[in-house]
Design a protein around this nucleic acid. Structure first.
Ligand SMILES: [Mn+2]
Ligand SMILES: [Mn+2]
Ligand SMILES: [Zn+2]
Ligand SMILES: [Zn+2]
Lengths: 126, 126
DNA sequence: GTCATAATCAGACTTATTCTAAATGACGAA
DNA sequence: TTCGTCATTTAGAATAAGTCTGATTATGAC
């Protein structure tokens, strides 16, 4: 009793979408495709999938969490005009990790990057 | 009509505190020091001070925003055990900015880092 | 089929933040 | 000083994301 139909449905929406959807986005998508799922189940599924390491939760300054089915290490960049959240695949150099460890005395578990700026599309418009 | 007494009071709390307080922390501090300010005013002041570039708002994954009077460019590191938020002064190498610009096609305005791990104090305890 | 357990559901609740509408206060002009 | 204006403050209502609850519905081992 693990990957129930509802959980799979939520997972599929995230897999299929290219844009890091929020819980509300997922809800809407499921509604539109004729499935009725409760909000509680969507949030429970998101938590289940996150624990199962099938997705991860992104907390990017904005109010609502977004969800990502891409599990390889990567970061994100947000357009300040249109709000889209794109992948940022540029890896952080190893020396940076070392420097953080040294400078802070922390046992560093992970380093998260969120860049902000104007996306290629928005750069064109005035 | 600008830096009113309430706004200054909020600012002073942030300046004096070493630990990136939340709105609620600030409220409590003001209460304890015998000033009565409304929540709305605290939030309005925080917005005013942020616009005035006297403080900045930190959105570190957690629920509540924290506020920082240190305006020089720097980042933050959060202890996963005790929750404290420390300064991370290690600057990101310039080549990283360039790489992000190149890899994403964005006009990059800023890059934010949040590291996570165990603080020196918590490393000692089992 | 029975029973235990896990998952779903609608809706109530919590918490951070924003909004609203009324009261207050500062300032300049008359 | 007295007014009028306009920014600020205030208490409390409203909003929005997310969590919790208790009842209901699968599931599947026996
Ligand atoms: Mn991603
Ligand atoms: Mn800081
Ligand atoms: Zn854009
Ligand atoms: Zn700690």
């Amino acid at each position: 009793m693990k990957l129930t139909p509802q959980r799979k449905a939520v997972f599929d929406v995230i897999l299929a979408s290219r844009d890091h959807p929020t819980a509300a986005d997922i809800m809407e998508h499921l509604r539109n495709s004729g499935q009725r799922v409760s909000y509680a189940t969507v949030y429970n599924s998101l938590k289940y999938l996150t624990n199962a390491q099938l997705i991860r939760e992104l907390k990017i300054g904005e109010s609502a969490s977004r969800y990502d089915a891409r599990m390889e290490a990567h970061h994100h960049i947000v357009c300040e005009k249109c709000g889209r959240v794109d992948e940022l695949l540029t890896p952080l150099p190893n020396e940076y990790w070392q420097a953080v460890t040294k400078d802070t005395g922390y046992d560093v578990h992970d380093i998260d990057i969120v860049a902000r700026g104007l996306c290629p599309d928005c750069r064109r418009q005035p």
